[in-house]
Structures are given as C-alpha cells and as structure tokens.
Simulated scan of single mutants.
Amino acid sequence: MPLVRVSLRRGKSAQHIAAIRNSIYRAMIESFNVPQNDRFIVVHQHDAEEFDYDPNYLDIARTDDLVMIQIACNNTRTVEQKKAFYQRTAELLSKEPGLRPQDVLINLLETGKENWSFGNGQAPYA
C-alpha cells in the first residue's frame, strides 16, 4: 500500500497534475509490484517561497518544474525493483505531462507491513 505524496510549485493545470498522478501510479503497477486499485496519492502545491531546492545538487540541473515524490511503502522491494521504478517513473513523466527527467526527485520511506491501517481500525497485514 504505497502512500504517495507529490510536491510541486503552484500553478500547474488540473490536467498536468492528473498526468503526474497517473504516470506515478502506472510506474508503480509496472515496476514496483503494486496491485490494481492500490492507489493513494495526494498532491501538495507550494508557492515559490515554500518550495526550496538546490538547482544543481549532484550535478543535476533542476528547474522550477521540479516534482518531489515521496512514497511510504512496505520494505519488501529489491534494489533492482527500486531502480526500475525510478527509471520508469522518470520515463512516464517525461511523456505525460512532459517533465524533464532531471526534474523528478523520488524518495522512498520504507516501513513494516504492520504499520498500515487501511480503514476500520484494522491492520490487515499485521
């Protein structure tokens, strides 16, 4: 059950934001072993003074179109799966909505399966 949080600068269209959500979800299904309908994504838009980043950290040239993606997920994936997911996400986002791969930052927060409740006060994976 990945919980995806997307942060970006304010001012993008609803279609642009939907394309980001859809591309991330597709990448999760294709390369991150996420089942259909396991879709929980929130988007946070920030004014310029609330969105701070280094435009050249690690010699990667970033622009104000930077999208920061943070995903809380189970700690069950291999390094190879993670690398494939990062690559596929950047590929899909470059197609729709047209982001540069340099403007895609992804961070995983891995947790044990017992740390999830999907509703009803129950922990189905515990």
Rank of each mutant, 00 (worst) to 15 (best):
M1V: 06
M1E: 02
P2T: 11
L3K: 02
L3P: 01
V4Q: 07
R5C: 07
V6H: 05
S7W: 01
R10G: 06
R10E: 15
S13Q: 01
S13L: 03
Q15D: 12
Q15P: 00
Y25C: 13
M28Y: 08
S31P: 03
D38L: 05
D38A: 14
R39E: 10
I41K: 01
V42E: 04
D47G: 09
A48R: 03
E49L: 02
E50W: 03
F51S: 04
D52T: 10
P55M: 10
N56E: 12
T63Y: 05
D64C: 07
D65E: 14
L66Q: 06
M68V: 12
M68T: 04
I71S: 06
I71D: 07
A72H: 03
N75G: 13
R77C: 12
Q81A: 15
F85S: 08
Y86I: 10
Q87M: 08
R88I: 13
R88C: 12
T89E: 11
T89P: 03
A90P: 00
L93A: 09
E96A: 12
E96Y: 01
G98A: 08
R100E: 15
P101F: 07
P101S: 07
Q102K: 11
L109D: 09
E110F: 08
T111E: 06
K113V: 15
K113M: 14
N115I: 01
W116C: 01
S117F: 00
G119Q: 00
N120K: 01
N120H: 08
Q122H: 00
P124C: 03
A126E: 05
